[in-house]
């Protein structure tokens, strides 16, 4: 986030850090105890599902707090129109975790904007661990910034025509104060408050640079995809949980004293 501020703990409890091979590459949001919403381009075909990790309950990328949880990925579902009608169109992905998220004050789901959401006069915020300056500096602390929504028509004019900004996209950014999302924020949420409830209206997707105010950031429009999201969350079977076997139970009974011994040896 360029022009943002450090976030206090528990302020955005749905924020996810998507790691690939141990490095933060994208954001995401918790929508369900088994599901994360993110951007399709964070999960390019050449990337291996096994190398992804999802972190929730995190504010500082370098410090796992008492509320931090870590998850492996069971399945990634990319929207079927991704890259079909536009180089970054349909930029939305659903990530199913191998095990369930335990909710707490610091880890909670966000609501999905319905297809008929009215985005007039709402206050919206973007969050992420992406680039924070023109020089490409990053911050380990989660950043936030209030992002005014920009009408589709104005955004199309700024970018040079309707073929650049399609109906599955949404533009937002503080042009006057140069606040916007940047590299590394992709997949993260744009959320707005409606009657004390936070709805996710956008997924950070793309833009022409981060510091050219005339080119606001472009998000995947969540309301356009909400039925697809609901369909897959409701119809995709949960991951198979490994059943305890006689040998693994034996291993568990053995591993506890061994762990304890290792702990005592380190004292």
């Amino acid at each position: 986030i360029v022009g943002g501020m450090d976030v206090p703990e528990r302020k955005w409890p749905w924020q996810v850090s998507v790691h690939y091979a141990g490095i933060h590459i994208c954001g995401g949001s918790i929508i369900n105890e088994y599901w994360i919403l993110s951007a399709a381009h964070c999960f390019q075909k050449e990337k291996s599902t096994e190398a992804f990790d999802m972190y929730v309950g995190l504010v500082d990328l370098n410090v796992a707090g008492s509320h931090t949880q870590w998850f492996e990925v069971n399945k990634v579902i990319i929207h079927p129109t991704y890259e079909l009608y536009h180089p970054v169109g349909g930029d939305i992905a659903l990530v199913q975790l191998k095990s369930r998220i335990v909710f707490s004050d610091s880890v909670l789901p966000v609501c999905i904007a319905p297809p008929d959401v009215n985005l007039q006069n709402v206050v919206c915020w973007a969050t992420g661990w992406g680039v924070i300056s023109q020089k490409g500096h990053t911050s380990d602390k989660l950043q936030e910034a209030q992002m005014p929504l920009i009408s589709l028509l104005l955004c199309q004019m700024l970018y040079g025509g309707p073929s650049y900004i399609m109906s599955d996209m949404l533009c937002a950014g503080d042009i006057r104060n140069v606040k916007t999302v940047c590299e590394g924020d992709s997949g993260g949420p744009l959320v707005c408050e409606f009657n004390h409830t936070w709805l996710q209206v956008g997924v950070v997707s793309w833009g022409r640079g981060c510091t050219y105010p005339m080119f606001p950031a472009v998000y995947a429009r969540v309301s356009y995809f909400s039925e697809w999201i609901h369909y897959h969350v409701e119809h995709t079977p949960l991951p198979l949980q490994p059943l305890p076997t006689r040998s693994s139970m034996l291993a568990a009974t053995l591993s506890a004293p061994v762990t304890m011994l290792a702990f005592l040896l380190t004292l």
Binding site: P109, C111, P114, V191, T197, E234
Partner: peptide
């Protein structure tokens, strides 16, 4: 799934947990 939020306020994808509420309020 139970949709615990009214449609106009967004949709919860959780059976037992209302979505979009946090325990602290921003400024």
């Amino acid at each position: 799934n139970a949709h615990r939020c009214p449609k106009s306020e967004g949709v919860s994808l959780n059976r037992d947990m209302a979505c979009g509420h946090r325990y602290i309020q921003g400024k």
